[in-house]
Write a protein that binds this DNA or RNA. Structure first.
Lengths: 258, 258
DNA sequence: ACTTAATAGCGTAAATTTTACGGAATAAAG
DNA sequence: CTTTATTCCGTAAAATTTACGCTATTAAGT
């Protein structure tokens, strides 16, 4: 949504194309520089940082809407995306932050009972993406973005902080049941990388020796011949997931501690 | 909703009181006779078995709506209720089963574009209740009910079978993180009772000796002096949850196998 | 009153997993 | 060629899980 015509049509007629009272605001996780990060957008009209988001078309299946929104924002297709909670306990989400002034500045009149003022529940999805493949696309409403370390999330719009917290908690709970490492890491990665990732998600230290030993013993990852040269010390070997063993293991749930 | 006036008002004006396109259909679990059961209602107008359900009032927080609906259907308050998924991938839920005939029989005209025909997403909650305390309340739309063993669920309305399956899967995943036994069992219970409950939920056999040993060793349950006389054999002792230890353990997640 | 059938539930030991760390190997900077 | 930083192999003790033998208790049947 970039031209003023599109925006005006969205404000005036959006309620005919989209389901009212509902939005999808995905928490997009990426991993870079040994940090777990989420994608935040700066919403101009609302004047603050928040999750990327979008509405559900009237005849569009819910999960398809989530994929479309993600595609529109990041260019990614076939992404791992999982619904984790529907937020509807803060009943008056948009009324707190009246964007009327913003639209008027551009000559768009919202009218009295514009659909964008109504109560909105948000279906929360989280996405696990390969950080290096994301191409954030901004639009009329969102001209800045940042990848923000989950340890330093600022105060966000609406109930988005609650959504981020819940997404993280879900990630933690499902770490042994979903392909979390597989989706967040690039194809080839080092032991320290996967080790730090799991420590970050679980929020606790894991003995690096035992951690690596377990992953290899279970046949979840395999060592490659290549090494990666980084820094003034021994070069780490590269590893790769054993896709089949890994997926089988997740079905059972990896009960062990890694 | 029992009188014809109420029903007529609901059909005609419900869209003013409730959020359109959304419903809540709780999966209510109870445990009786060594069987895990869910509550099903026979929906007259739709002519089939389905979950109890209801709509969200326009200014009502989502979780409060879930509790209200549960209260209206079963008389229970302060019930353990957990959201587990929002269903919106079958876009045309009600259009498959047109209840127009049913209402016309009672002289209620639905009109052409009645709100009840529109696409409806369903926010799925599951409840864990003490079977013995439930008082099912039927109404104009629902005159029969049954507690149905989860192993024998018939074909249900809309996507309710999917909802039941997903609720069960969630129960299984969360068995070591939520007070599942605590909420489903009566205050005092026997070892065989809790043992069968866990076997049913997990869908696999657990060695009864090790199972009991573990629960007692972790301090989750304690043996009472009383026994219960049942059947032509040794009477089992009664046990009770150690509420505090139990809740602490759940926060960590009981990693062990029981 | 004694036998039998049907469960309840204690106890022990072997197998497996987890935890804790010592220390060698490697790479680049000075 | 020494120092510093980091990778990651290996071993052993501790803890947990698994497997299963065996006794205890109750009521029904004879």
């Amino acid at each position: 949504m970039n031209s003023l015509e599109e925006v005006e049509d969205f404000v005036r007629n959006g309620h005919r194309h989209y389901l009212p009272h509902l939005s999808i605001d995905p928490v997009i996780f990426g991993y870079h520089d040994q940090q777990l990060k989420i994608l935040l957008l700066n919403w101009k009209g609302l004047n603050g940082w928040g999750l990327p988001g979008g509405f559900i078309q009237r005849r569009e299946p819910l999960s398809q809407a989530a994929h479309r929104i993600l595609q529109e924002r990041t260019g990614l297709e076939n992404v791992f995306l999982q619904q984790f909670h529907t937020f509807g306990d803060s009943p008056y989400r948009l009324q707190e932050r009246n964007p009327r002034e913003f639209f008027e500045k551009y000559g768009v009149d919202m009218g009295e009972d514009n659909w964008l003022f109504e109560r909105t529940l948000s279906v929360g999805y989280f996405a696990l993406v390969d950080y290096s493949k994301v191409n954030v696309r901004t639009d009329f409403f969102t001209q800045n973005y940042q990848w923000c370390d989950v340890k330093e999330i600022p105060s966000l719009l609406f109930d988005h902080n609650e959504a981020v917290d819940k997404a993280l908690a879900t990630l933690r709970l499902q770490i042994y049941h979903q392909p979390i490492g597989y989706k967040l890491l690039p194809e080839k990665f080092t032991l320290p990388e996967i080790h730090t990732l799991y420590e970050t998600i679980l929020g606790k230290e894991l003995d690096p020796r035992n951690f690596a030993k377990k992953l290899v013993a279970l046949g979840l990852i395999k060592k490659l011949a290549e090494q990666r040269a980084i820094g003034p010390h021994r070069s780490p070997y590269l590893y790769q997931f054993e896709k089949e063993t890994y997926e089988d293991a997740l079905k059972q749930g990896i009960v062990h501690t890694y």
